[in-house]
């Protein structure tokens, strides 16, 4: 793909994303399923309230969640030299799940409290993985991080199982289950804005370092011989990627498959070079989650958990890619 074709393709996706976002704000189930005409905003205070305080933050959050998960997924895949890595695997997703369930049972059931607890345990999961990886006496750093990540995730997922067992089946259990399936139904400005600075900063770091990611995806000795300091630079990018993931997971719950499938699509369309694949992942990820969330809130009178839809479409796309083209 030439750079010209890349710029055209990326501009096109950006345009589609902006148009979809604009449409999403006026599309929903109020006052009846379908369109809400912009003119109504002035006449109907409830409509204005709905658009400004519910749909707008929710659309923004969907785009941010998708962009962050996809960019982090691509980054971790390149740092770990493994195209099958997903952004929550270092104990972050299961840590967040445990934190949310813990808050629902023992702390508070307000969305902000659940989010804070999820974020805290996500970071604890990452720290535990990092700490344990340093103490494993086996393999190189990649293998150690992967093994520690698997172990920490399993510990937290056992903890989640225990909390579900202890939860009140009529009130707490459905709430835990719903959180675990992922979704943006509780998004308001007051729980979206706190994660915005952290994740935006992390995404800017990843965006700026996209050429460096290519270098760090080489073997250790080669990256070193090219003047990189693989250990330090990897730690920086890892922290940015996982920080962004922890932030959006704390808001949206476990939204599966986005961080795995979108980088594959981005590489499929725009090539493996992260100078192109990273911006493409950001936009495609935002678009993918936005579309899934539009479906999640409109197809039924209730709410379909977002994580179910992203997993459904993500896994389907993955199977199509695998059977038709092979991994890239």
């Amino acid at each position: 793909m030439t750079w010209r074709a890349y710029r055209t393709g990326l501009s096109l996706i950006l345009l589609v994303l902006l148009v979809t976002a604009a449409i999403s704000v006026f599309f929903g189930r109020y006052p009846r399923p379908g369109w809400l005409l912009p003119g109504r905003l002035r006449a109907d205070p409830l409509a204005a309230q709905l658009v400004w305080n519910l749909r707008l933050p929710r659309v923004a959050a969907a785009v941010l969640v998708g962009a962050a998960l996809s960019a982090s997924g691509l980054t971790l895949q390149m740092l770990f030299r493994n195209p099958l890595v997903e952004p929550g695997f270092l104990g972050v997703s299961q840590g967040a799940a445990f934190g949310a369930a813990f808050s629902i049972l023992y702390l508070s059931r307000s969305p902000l409290a659940i989010q804070a607890s999820a974020a805290a345990f996500a970071l604890l999961g990452l720290w535990l993985t990092y700490f344990l990886a340093g103490h494993l006496r086996y393999g190189g750093w990649i293998l150690r991080m992967v093994l520690a990540g698997i172990a920490v995730s399993a510990l937290f997922s056992a903890g989640v199982g225990m909390l579900k067992y202890l939860a009140d089946p009529l009130t707490q259990l459905p709430e835990i289950t719903f959180w675990l399936l992922g979704g943006l139904w509780s998004t308001r400005w007051q729980n979206f804005l706190p994660i915005l600075p952290v994740s935006a900063l992390a995404l800017v770091v990843l965006f700026l370092a996209r050429w460096r990611m290519n270098v760090l995806s080489l073997e250790e000795e080669t990256a070193f011989s090219l003047g990189a300091a693989p250990g330090r630079e990897r730690a920086l990018l890892l922290l940015a990627a996982v920080g962004a993931t922890a932030a959006v997971v704390s808001l949206a719950g476990t939204v599966g498959w986005v961080g795995l499938i979108v980088p594959h699509l981005a590489r499929r369309f725009f090539g493996a070079d992260a100078r192109r694949a990273l911006p493409a992942s950001l936009l495609l990820g935002g678009l993918f989650v936005l579309l899934c969330d539009d479906l999640a809130r409109t197809v039924t009178a209730g709410e379909v958990p977002l994580g179910i839809l992203t997993s459904l479409f993500g896994a389907a796309a993955f199977l199509v890619i695998l059977t038709r083209f092979g991994i890239k």
Partner: peptide, 24 residues
């Protein structure tokens, strides 16, 4: 350095890979 072998898990094009030599 030309290492003994370089396993590249992603499908870089040859020019993109050679361009990495410009990093220093």
């Amino acid at each position: 350095l030309v290492p003994q072998r370089e396993h590249i898990p992603f499908e870089f094009r040859v020019l993109e890979y050679v361009l990495l030599g410009r990093t220093p």
